[in-house]
């Protein structure tokens, strides 16, 4: 028996919008720790890891570990039927091949349930060890989204370079080149507007912009984003979900031949 009640149902709607472009089908794993997902895009270039901790739910019952295969486009269709203020409850019985999403309006005058068929998905789980990153950049998520969007109108790839001067995003294409430098800026009115660079050593890596643009679908989940970079490792782009967990995207760099 699984029953997860999330008062801030809009979070779940935003999570689906954040991952459905990158991943088509995925297994949602439910355990005492929380509601999680790890999935790669079809070309295995990018990976998304989601965690919604059990403590973040108003009610969390998960009698045994359960993995539920879902088509994310279909989940998104179901969740789009929930109002933005609705409380969302996810329910499944042991051994059942369906999951139910229940939507309650804030004043309880409308209750809807949507039952969706589960599917068998052969997904590979990758072990991602904790790593020390050479540089971690924290910046406003809207600013990062803007940079990725702007650069992708010029080129297909971006070189992200971190030095003690700041973080530089560079691209080149048929019509020309572009460089955007963001300097560390801690002296802002609100902490979420700061750009903070923690650098152990300078690092420079090249990435495909279309994946980074896809990651920025998570922008509504968090006002800030952190970008962790190391030579010879995928970049980690993390959006924290207030008090509950995170959506982390991993993107393999371009490798010099």
């Amino acid at each position: 028996m699984l029953e997860l009640r999330l008062v801030q149902g809009s979070l779940l709607k935003k999570v689906l919008e954040a991952i459905k472009e990158l991943v088509t089908d995925a297994n949602f794993d439910c355990s005492a720790t929380g509601f999680s997902l790890q999935a790669m895009d079809s070309s295995h270039v990018a990976l998304v890891a989601l965690l919604l901790r059990s403590e973040g739910f108003e009610h969390y019952r998960c009698d045994r570990n359960l993995s539920m295969g879902m088509n994310l486009g279909n989940v998104s269709k179901m969740l789009r039927c929930a109002g933005s203020d609705d409380i969302i409850t996810i329910k499944a019985d042991d051994g059942s091949d369906t999951v139910t999403f229940m939507f309650e309006s804030p004043n309880q005058d409308k209750i809807a349930d949507f039952e969706m068929k589960l599917m068998d998905i052969d997904s590979e789980h990758l072990g991602i060890p904790d790593a020390e990153y050479q540089a971690i950049v924290r910046m406003p998520s809207g600013e990062f989204a803007r940079i990725c969007k702007d650069l992708s109108s010029i080129g297909d790839t971006v070189i992200i370079s971190v030095t003690k001067e700041g973080v530089k995003f560079s691209t080149a294409g048929d019509i020309g080149t572009a460089n955007i430098v963001c300097r560390q800026n801690k002296t802002v009115d609100k902490p979420e507007e700061a750009t903070v660079i923690e650098m152990q050593e300078p690092v420079s890596l090249t990435f495909a912009l279309r994946y980074l643009n896809s990651f920025t679908k998570a922008t509504p989940l968090s006002e800030t984003v952190s970008i962790s970079l190391s030579s010879d490792l995928p970049v980690v782009v993390e959006y924290k979900i207030a008090d509950m967990g995170y959506v982390r995207y991993y993107l393999a760099p371009k490798i010099e031949e």
């Binding site: 371009k254 490798i255 031949e257």
Partner: peptide, 14 residues
């Protein structure tokens, strides 16, 4: 020239 890496170049299946 550069080639696009994949997750398998960096992480092991578990």
């Amino acid at each position: 020239d550069s080639i696009q890496g994949t997750m398998y170049d960096f992480y092991e299946k578990c």
